[in-house]
Every structure is written in structure tokens, then in C-alpha cells.
Design a protein around this nucleic acid. Sequence first.
RNA 1: UGGCCGAUGGUGUAAUGGUAACACAGGACAUUUUGGUUGUCUUAUUCAGGGUUCGAGUCCUUGUCGGCCAACCA
Length: 557
Amino acid sequence: MITEEKKEEKNLNFIEEIVEGDLQSGKYTQIITRFPPEPNGYLHIGHASSICLNFGLTKKFQGYTNLRFDDTNPVTEDTEYVESIKNDIRWMGFEWENELYASDYFDKLYEFAVTLISKGLAYVDDSTSEEIATLKGTPTEPGKDSPYRNRTAEENLVLFEEMKNGAFPDGSRTLRAKIDMAHINMLMRDPILYRIKHAHHHRTGDKWCIYPMYDFAHGQSDSIETVTHSICTLEFAPHRELYDWLIEQLGIYPSQQYEFARRNLNYTVTSKRKLLRLVQEGHVNGWNDPRMPTISGLRRRGYTPESIRDFCERIGVARRENMIDVGLLEFCVREDLNKIASRRMVVLDPVKVLITNFPEGVTEMCHSENNPEDMGAGMREIPFTKEIFIEKEDFMEVPSKKYFRLAPGKMVRLKGAYIILCNDMIKNEEGEITEVHCSYVENSKSGQDTTGINVKGTLHWVSALHAAEVEVRLYDRLFSVEDVSSEEGDFQDYINPKSLEIITGYAEPALLEAKEGESFQFLRKGYFAKDSDSNAARLVFNRTVTLRDNWTKAAEK
RNA sequence: UGGCCGAUGGUGUAAUGGUAACACAGGACAUUUUGGUUGUCUUAUUCAGGGUUCGAGUCCUUGUCGGCCAACCA
């Protein structure tokens, strides 16, 4: 018990350590975090990490987390995304204290801007975006002051109000902070605070034609909500100086920003821009395509919230660049599904086996455990008949040394049923094996085996008479290279052409009772989840992940 | 040729000046009516140089390498 507590304490990541320190020192009596998605796309595995961090922090320590949509750019944002984001967070197992929107604060933000102007710390600039860019300088050269920089506060106040009232066209003017055009930090070179966009906003409609920039919305929203720890990714680190400056000049609640490195997964992409292109250009079937690294895609693929949270916990939080092996994600879902998924037998690539000494027209019921890891899951019935299917790969005419499946003269156990002995096979004109002839061993039935025969191999099988055809979708990694961004050319050049294979599987009858979204282990084949494309006439299953497979690995050597 | 951030096994993360650890991946064996699971064992690590110190992955310094910063995106 003591060692367990110690371990837990030692596992604190650097942000948890900061929070713990702030709580212990009495700086705060409770902490407030926020998860701030922009509603312009679906949440992905990288967001999952941020969700676990922000919500996990206030679950572990005293406090709460707000969900705040960062909706300051009406052109790209949509309520469809708002709904999917809320759904995904809840599915992940977290609940927010308040559902908030940066757009809720547009009036307040406008007041803040007026305050800044009045203090001589912001001005209306009539420069074009090209002019602004030119005057900005470069990281090694200082910028130059805009010719509009020294307008009086009175003049600025009037112009800014006219901007708000729609007197000017898009892009004709901006409100800029008056800081220092020679500042070593480019973001401090009079950053733009407001721009003119005569665009319809998903929440405020046509009320506004000026919208605040990220830097003038995010920190101020944090402050309004008295967020104590504002956690974001590393690329915002240079923004922190501006974040602090604005809060300081406005004299408002001092939220503090902390940055951590975004998590990268190999063989996929997690940039919203790229994900959007995959969807729009039809490389996948929507944001929730099971190949997508989106939360909704992973859910449809069969990933559980538990496994994703476990993954986020295992990859941790740090400040260094990283490329996480997708194998770890797969490990996490296997570990979870192994405990909870019912076993079913489904033959994916069948060859017929005739049990020559079994009576014709007879169906004998066998019984098998639903889950050997959980005897509470009970047993199920499986019909056995004279004709069954097994996997083609489970029979070999000339077996290699370590092969212990079916081969002429060899015996295997049929899972939950009898031991069979292979006597013969039938080939077609092309020399392909079309039928395997076996005899079953009497008194070898599973659970009542008195033969004392020990066989090395156990195969899954399904009665040909009872086999139900189901559609099975086999997924592979979406990209054929680990890190698309380090390759030449367009990222879509590296899409794996074999990322989806659709086949017909032959399932035991018990699988027909599957509920939508339910996960199963298809014995010896992997974990599969029933897809929402299923209907009364056709069941569809998505392969979540294969089982660990030492045999294929060894056989390839 | 500016500034900021970073660098620990193949991957990810710990070690908070005092024995470099954990997980995944890899390898071996055992168990197994899933070549699954489980168990045991195992391979492999502090970017480089200099300094401070009884003692440095940790502090200082120089260098190297990587990331970020010049959107009216977030």
C-alpha cells in the first residue's frame, strides 16, 4: 500500500508537479483548467492526450475543467463540429463543469480592446496585410513602425467603433497592440488583435463583423474564467510573452500558460488540415472512418475509452519532440479487449473439411466458454456437423518442421469439439486443395475427453451448414511510412493502398446476436467490433487489431 | 547569420546532486483446448567537449543536432 502510493507520486508528470506545488504552497485552493478546441474539425488521438491531461488534472487534484470552444474564426467553424467534440469528450469518460464559447465573451473582449486603446496601447492600422508583413521584419532584422502607429487614442477609438459598425470592408483595417516593432519576439511586434470579417458566426450570427485573433481571445477567456493552469502545446510557447503582457496591461486575473509537446503517432497524420483533406478528397469515408486517428474513427474501429486513456497515461507528458509507436496503442486495446471481449469462431478464408466417420444429417451441440479470462461470461452452444470450414492456412500438405496444425496423418483439436485426424485431401485441376478429409476421434469431445491424446494444435472452425456469412473489414495502417512529414512531396502520395480489405467471413451462429459497437475476439484472428453499417440482412465487422502473432513472425524467418 | 525550447535503450517516459528505472517493442524458456493470455529470464541507454563537486543524466559553459517563431489561422 505504502509502496503503491509512493509509486503514484513518482509518476507525476511535470505539469502535475507544478499543480501539486501550487496547491501545497497555497497559491491556489483549487485549480481550474480548460479544454479549448476550435470547432473546425473532429477530435483526434492528439486531442485525447490533451483531454486526459486537462480533465485528469482536475480529477486527480481539487478543481474543475471547462469545455471552451475557441470560436473566433467564423469562416472555418461549424456546429457539426461542436456536437462531435462534445460527444467524443463524454465518450472518453470526462464531463466538463461549464460549456463555454470564446464567442460568449465578444462584448467583454471589445471592452478590453477599448481599454487598451484608451491607454495608448493599441491602434487602428490601415495597412494591407502585405504592408504589415513587410514592416514586420524577420527573426534577424527588426521591423518598422506602421505610418498609422501614432494616431491619437481619440482617433483610434472612433475608428475602432466604425470598424465594429461595419463601416469598412474586410481586410481594410486591423486593431493592433502597440508594443515594440523591434522586439526580439516576432509575436510582440505589434500583433493584430482584431480583424474585419463580414462573416456569419455559428453562434453570434451577424452581430459582429470584427473578430478577435487567438492571442486576444484565448488568454482573456482564460482570465475571465479564472483558469489557473492554461495548458497548450509547445508551438504556443512564444505566445506566452504576449499572453502575459495582455493580462498585465488589462489588469485582469493572471491565468498562467504551460506548454507540453504534442504527441505524434507513426504511420498516421494528426494535423486537422491533413485530416480534412483525407475526408474532402475521398481517401477515407468520413471523419469517423475506422482508419482515421480521430476519436470517432477509433471508436468505430473498436477502441475502448479505457484503452485510449491507458495509452495517454503510458505515453506521458513532456516537452520533447516525439514519435510514438502505434504498436503501443494496439497493445493497450488488446489488453483491455482481452479481458472483456467474448470469443467467437469466424473462418475468414475457408476450406471445407469432411468428417468422414461422422453421421450425415446430425447436428451435435458443443459448448465453449465465452471468455477464458472471465468465467462469469458464461458458455455458449456451437453446432457441429459432418461438414465444417477451417482456415486454408490451417492445413498444409507438406508441413514445415514446427507447423503443428492440420496435415496428412496429423491430429488437431477443434476448439470446443473433437480431435480429428487428417486422412486425405482432394485437389482441383489447378492443384489447389478443395477439401480435406478427416476422421474424428471418439470420446475426445471437449470437456469429456477420455482418450488421453495430447495434440499440439487447436483450430477454430464453423459448421458449414450453420455458417453465417458476415462482411469483415480488415484495416491496416493508413500510411506506408512512419512519418509523412519527413517525406518528399504531398502526404497523400504515401497513403497505404491496402489500408482496407473487405472479405466475407463464415461465423458461428452465436455471432448473429451481436449488438452494434460490441467487441469480440474472433478466435486466433483478432478483435472485431460490429459496425454501424450492419443491417438485418448483412452484419459488418471491423477488425480493431490482430492478435499478437508469434507464429507468423517465426514462419517468416 | 537572431531568439526561445529540447536532447536518457529501437520507441515513450522516470530518476528533483548519491546504485540509470518502468512500459512497449525484440530474444529465450515454461504454461496453455486460441502459436492468444499468463509467468520467468534476457538484449539494449544518459548527444559531444570542458568545468564545479567527495560525487553530475541532473548544475555551469562551449559546441553539435532537432523543433518552433516573419497567417488579418488556432
